[in-house]
């Protein structure tokens, strides 16, 4: 058995900064897909309530105790930062921890940067803190969540990590150049 090197998806690529916007990587954490079995939706929600969360409505997430659950589609949510406890027999659980790159774009110009790659209204009124959207980041599929007033969590497939970093960094430097040019 060769000894494998444990690396995060964006190791050696992040953090990068431009124009007051910083792109960094979240610490590697457990990510589980939770898909309640037919008729077990309520029971699954109750099991998630027991760990302080619950079942998120479409386009929303619930955070508590350093863990969060993101709505990711019909009958599916991603549990981040917590063990999927108490869901045996209630929902299909798939470990996704190594499948996704989780980036954090933060800074007062983060919305402007994302506006170059995302065809959504991301102003705080339309996309307040905790909001979640499955949409495109340029040509990539993405799960987007507002993490704070000026911060976004961006989840892309791990295989797309380097491309996502390049695309975002390109948009960041372009926005910074525009600001610098006045």
């Amino acid at each position: 058995m060769p000894s494998l090197i444990s690396k995060s998806p964006c190791e050696d690529l992040l953090p990068v900064e431009a124009g007051g916007v910083k792109l960094s990587e979240y610490p590697v954490d457990r990510v589980s897909s939770v898909a309640p079995f037919a008729g077990k939706e309520r029971a699954s929600g109750a099991a998630l309530k027991a760990i302080g969360l619950g079942w998120p409505k479409p386009g929303q997430s619930i955070s508590a105790n350093g863990a969060r659950i993101l709505w990711t589609g019909r009958g599916q949510a991603f549990l981040v930062g917590a063990e999927p406890a108490g869901l045996d027999g209630l929902a299909a659980i798939t470990d996704q921890s190594d499948g996704w790159a989780r980036l954090r774009l933060a800074g007062s110009g983060a919305e402007t940067v994302l506006a170059r790659l995302v065809a959504l209204d991301l102003r705080p009124g339309a996309f307040p803190e905790g909001s979640v959207a499955r949409t495109g980041l340029g040509h990539m599929m993405m799960i987007l969540r507002r993490d704070g007033a000026d911060a976004f969590e961006i989840m892309v497939f791990r295989s797309m990590a380097a491309f996502a970093v390049r695309e975002l960094h390109h948009a960041m430097t372009a926005c910074a150049a525009r600001v610098a040019a006045g």
Partner: peptide, 10 residues
């Protein structure tokens, strides 16, 4: 019906 109004490209 779940996500709301989105661009046709999605």
């Amino acid at each position: 019906p779940l996500c709301g109004s989105r661009d046709r490209r999605e």
